[in-house]
């Protein structure tokens, strides 16, 4: 009997599998298909202070081994999420949920965290710092160590809950960003968000996505994510949620060997709504093959 449980900054998960933000909504669509209580947790759809309608159509494009999206943080706003979605999450999921939040200013991040501080079922707040900072000329908070540290400090002051900073891979040195977050008090980091990409429509000779650029995800980005988790594991002591192109239980083991404590599954859910269920079912056999009785023993194993 393999023990699949993991501990993420003090939060116990029954297994390391977490559907990634933006691929799982607030759980409703998947709860219609299977009992989502089998999941370690899930990261809800990125939520901002105000409702956001998102980007114009088309928002989705395909590529070999994955996809691009430019949804644009469409969400009902933090107050509506707490009012309408949190009570429903309590009905469909009994474990701790990960609240993914976005923000366009330090105050917005902090305010979102304050509002979530009293939401009991939120086990971890995952802070997406890939949004452009409206006060710093649109530069992404997550692409500058000093800005990433400022967000970390602001959210840590606003909540007692563990805070994981979700890092963008669109930087020169992701380990330096992760270290800045750790030094500013982050309880963990989650990486990677999507890689910035573009497709051109040969019929119109224009970008295929209305937003022009979109975030690349899917199996094609998996080795990029593994490499970045490896680099961050070398640089920080706080736990890492590994994310990017994970599609199988073997991918989960690989991500953990690179340094992840838990693993988010994103685009794979969109292709196969049962992807996380299948991965969880296959994890014990993969652990047995790797000779570990506790899956947590895999974390960082490749560095030894």
């Amino acid at each position: 009997m393999v023990n699949l449980s993991v501990n993420l900054a003090g939060v116990e998960l029954k297994n390391p599998i977490i559907p990634a933000s933006g691929t799982f909504g607030f759980g409703r669509e998947y709860a219609e298909l299977y009992d989502i209580n089998i999941l370690g947790s899930f990261s809800w759809k990125g939520t901002t202070a105000d409702m956001r309608l998102g980007n114009p159509q088309p928002r989705i494009a395909e590529m070999a081994g994955g996809m691009l999206n430019a949804v644009g943080l469409q969400n009902p706003g933090i107050d509506a999420v707490i009012r309408d979605e949190v009570p429903n999450i309590a009905k469909i999921f009994s474990g701790p949920v990960i609240a993914n939040i976005g923000g366009f200013s330090l105050e917005e991040y902090a305010e979102n965290c304050r509002k979530l501080n009293d939401v009991e079922q939120v086990g971890i707040i995952e802070v997406n710092i890939s949004c452009p900072n409206v006060h710093a000329g649109g530069k992404n908070f997550g692409s500058d160590p000093a800005l990433a540290a400022q967000v970390t400090e602001a959210v840590k002051k606003a909540t007692n809950k563990p805070v994981f900073m979700k890092l963008t891979p669109n930087v020169t040195d992701i380990a330096a960003i992760a270290k800045a977050c750790e030094d500013a008090g982050a309880d963990g980091v989650c990486l990677i968000n999507t890689l910035l990409g573009m497709r051109i429509n040969l019929n119109t000779k224009k970008p295929l996505i209305a937003n022009r650029t979109g975030g690349v995800s899917g199996p094609a980005v998996f080795p990029v994510a593994v490499r970045m988790v490896w680099d961050v594991y070398e640089a920080v002591k706080i736990p890492i949620i590994g994310c990017g192109g994970v599609s199988s239980a073997e991918d989960v083991a690989e991500m953990m060997l690179a340094g992840a404590t838990a693993v988010e599954v994103g685009a794979a859910n969109l292709k196969d709504p049962y992807a996380c269920k299948t991965i969880i079912e296959n994890l014990p056999a993969v652990c047995e093959r790797l000779g570990v009785a506790n899956i947590s023993e895999l974390t960082g194993g490749a560095h030894k």
């Binding site: 909504g25 998947y30 999206n69 949804v71």
Partner: peptide, 12 residues
Amino acid sequence: RMGCGFGACVGC
């Protein structure tokens, strides 16, 4: 253009 087809990704 759809991502998932079952309502999860809000791509469409």
